[in-house]
Design a protein around this nucleic acid. Structure first.
Length: 645
RNA sequence: GGUCCGGUAGCUCAGCUGGAUAGAGCAACAGCCUUCUAAGCUGUAGGCCCUUGGUUCGAAUCCAAGCCGGAUCACCA
């Protein structure tokens, strides 16, 4: 695998091959034919070509209805004319044609497939370098709790996209923005100080992120308890625990609560009262004081913050490494928020932004159909988007990016739209390249996961469970004779991780998905292990016999043989489309179809005991091509391809 | 309420820049291991593609209206 990777990297940097797929050639040739026959100038991309349905003879079908309109001729007449022209003038590529109701079904010369087989058998070719530099930010966790199942989708998407973009010839920088500052961080710090008794990851044997997460949840629970008590007092018209300035408004809410008739309305009002109670708990006051001290650079607070952050980050690194993910660059919100503030203040001087009477800074986006947006609070502290402005500029200056992608859940669509718009208005050169890779949240059957309510599925637990299930399945099948303990562990990890990654990547990222922890993730059908298994089986054949001999390019191809090569040949298209749509699920569907086709091929035809020596060579090479295509696709999905399983 | 996203087989999802009889996987049913790994292969069954109207030779796909579900519109992050 390592060797192959080096080959790929080499190809990526030095290979300047212009990718010319069969489909592209057909489009170009069809466009040329139309030019010759009808003097019709049409871009090859405008020509609609589908794969020919299995019931008809042919490989690809040109759909001529649209042309019929432009040429004022019957579809069948055009189809016949193009078909005859193609077969007459490009006989080395097109063997035959057939016209059925406006569809021109073209049979590709087998030699084209056989040439592809020869040229790609040892290494599947990526696209030549574009010179384009793209940063992709993903994961970006808060440093107050461990990663959960939702992060897994984010991480796998980001990791896979970075690989896919690299395969498309771009230079990719993977970045991770740590949200390491703010009130949520102070909450876990406060609770640790109050209840931790000096507990550390070393003293407790707990993973750092889990340890800190425990105190975050503890804070929330304790604070909620206190808030519940205060709420009771408020409902009894006792307002002694809350801030004087809030008493009047709270009093009105309590009256409204008592007068409300409908249960829904009562609940809404009570929620508001609870919010006020929460803000007035000793816990929240403690956390706020801590944040203030942090911003004032209080030595003890900073020391505690650094220590607890380091625990979390060590924990994250452990998880990332288990997931097979690494980053080229870490950014920290604590290091960028001041830069953002500076840019915003400069924007005030330029007159792009404006101040309100209480000194808060705003941008007016009403002309763009959005609202006014706050960029700095009245007290001068920055809000969430302020640091994003700083980070965006910093990224651009660090790497001179052509494009800057953000893998962030779709709940932040508005936020990302606003961010780009603000940077544009500020005249920041980084603005144009910003693009949000939006994905749907992973939900449980019961609804959204919430750390504070303890309804999250933990990332580490999920991985461990997947590996355990992989081990169970593997042992039941009993095919791992001769494996060492280490090899077995690696295999369980490979399969468990493959199942999980494929499960999360196979669905269109834009769509939200529901994950039911009660139903285990499948290992059959449209899954990672299915594809890994096709790879392993093929490896088994190739271990027994391999060949360096060239295939006779005049050999006749059986349908099962041709189908495999034909699908493999569509690899380039598949990675181009995945990159264009920033969507790894396209690649998942593609590699599944290759694996399925390969399995059918292996079920139908003998390889090692083929009818003739020529057929054996051909089929061994088809195995090699398909195996490499599958391994390459899996690699682009961040999934390992085992040689035995 | 404004904006955005989704609604396809019992379940999970492809297909959506309009094109041939709407496809996979799971679950169900029926076959296939003295022959390269059965985590596999082959077959059967299962569909008012949310509704209504429009555009078109042709609509799951485009447009409009509506229904259902979700996100978002904070001096939260």
């Amino acid at each position: 695998m390592i060797y192959l990777w080096n080959v790929w990297v080499g190809m990526y940097y030095f290979c300047q091959i212009i990718m010319n797929t069969i489909l592209q050639q057909l489009k170009e040739d069809a466009a040329a034919s139309l030019q010759t026959i009808y003097s019709l100038t049409i871009a090859p991309t405008e020509i609609l070509i589908n794969e020919t349905k299995p019931d008809f003879a042919g490989d690809y079908s040109i759909v001529t209805f649209a042309l019929s309109k432009q040429l004022s001729l019957k579809p069948d007449a055009i189809a016949h004319a193009i078909g005859e022209h193609l077969v007459a003038n490009y006989s080395e590529k097109y063997a035959a044609f057939d016209v059925i109701q406006g569809f021109l079904n073209i049979t590709i010369q087998p030699v084209l497939f056989l040439n592809y087989l020869q040229e790609n058998i040892n290494a599947i070719q990526y696209l030549p370098s574009t010179g384009k530099k793209i940063m992709i930010e993903f994961s970006s966790p808060n440093t107050n709790k461990p990663l959960h199942f939702g992060h897994l989708r984010n991480n796998f998407l980001g990791d896979s996209l970075s690989r896919i973009l690299a395969a498309n010839g771009h230079t990719v920088i993977k970045s991770n923005l740590l949200n390491d500052r703010g009130i949520h961080i102070c909450k876990s710090m406060y609770a640790w100080q109050a209840f931790g008794n000096g507990e550390t990851p070393t003293s407790s044997g707990k993973k750092g992120d889990h340890l800190v997460g425990y105190y975050y949840v503890l804070f929330e629970n304790k604070m909620k308890e206190e808030a519940a008590a205060i709420t009771e007092e408020l409902l009894q018209n006792n307002f002694s625990k809350i801030n004087e300035s809030q008493i009047n408004a709270t009093e009105k809410l309590v009256i409204a609560y008592n007068n409300a008739a409908e249960a829904n309305k009562k609940k809404d009002i009570k929620d508001k009262i609870v919010d006020i109670a929460k803000a007035n708990t000793n816990y929240m006051q403690g956390a706020r004081e801590m944040l203030l001290k942090w911003e004032e650079n209080d030595a003890d607070t900073i020391a505690l913050w650094q220590e607890m952050n380091s625990w979390v980050i060590t924990g994250f690194e452990n998880t990332y490494s288990k997931l097979g993910i690494h980053f080229d660059k870490y950014y920290k919100e604590s290091e960028t928020y001041l830069l953002g503030k500076k840019i915003v203040l400069a924007g005030v001087d330029n007159g792009v932004l404006f101040k309100k009477e209480n000194n808060s800074v705003w941008i007016d986006l009403t002309a763009d159909g959005l609202d006014e947006k706050l960029l700095l609070r009245g007290d001068g502290t920055s809000v969430y988007i302020t640091q994003d402005i700083g980070t965006a500029q910093l990224k651009y200056n660090d790497y001179q990016l052509d494009q800057s992608l953000y893998v962030i859940a779709d709940e932040q669509n508005y936020h990302m739209q606003v961010l780009k718009l603000i940077l544009q208005k500020l005249g920041e050169p980084c603005a144009e390249g910003i693009q949000h890779v939006s994905y749907g949240l992973v939900e449980l059957p019961s609804g959204r996961m919430k750390t504070r309510e303890g309804t999250v599925v933990d990332a580490d637990d999920t991985m461990d469970e997947m590996i355990a299930i992989a081990a169970k399945h593997t042992n039941e099948l009993g095919k791992t004779e001769g494996f060492t303990t280490d090899e077995l562990d690696t295999l369980y990890n490979t399969i468990g991780q493959g199942a999980l990654k494929f499960f999360l990547l196979r669905v269109d990222a834009k769509k939200k998905m529901i994950f039911n922890p009660e139903e285990s993730i499948d290992f059959h059908g449209f899954t990672g292990p299915f594809i890994q298994y096709a790879h392993a089986r093929t490896c088994a054949i190739l271990r027994k016999e391999n060949t360096n001999k060239n295939v006779d390019v005049t050999i006749e191809l059986l349908k099962a043989e041709k189908q495999v090569i034909k699908l493999c040949e569509q690899f380039t298209q598949s990675i181009m489309q995945s990159a264009a749509e920033l969507n790894p699920s396209i690649l998942c569907n593609y590699v599944f179809s290759v694996a399925k086709q390969l399995n059918s091929f292996l079920a139908e035809l003998k390889v090692l005991t083929a009818e003739t020596e020529e057929k054996k060579i051909l089929r061994l090479q088809i195995c090699e091509l398909a195996k490499n295509t599958i391994a390459t696709c899996l690699q682009l999905l961040g999934i390992q391809a085992p040689e035995k399983m």
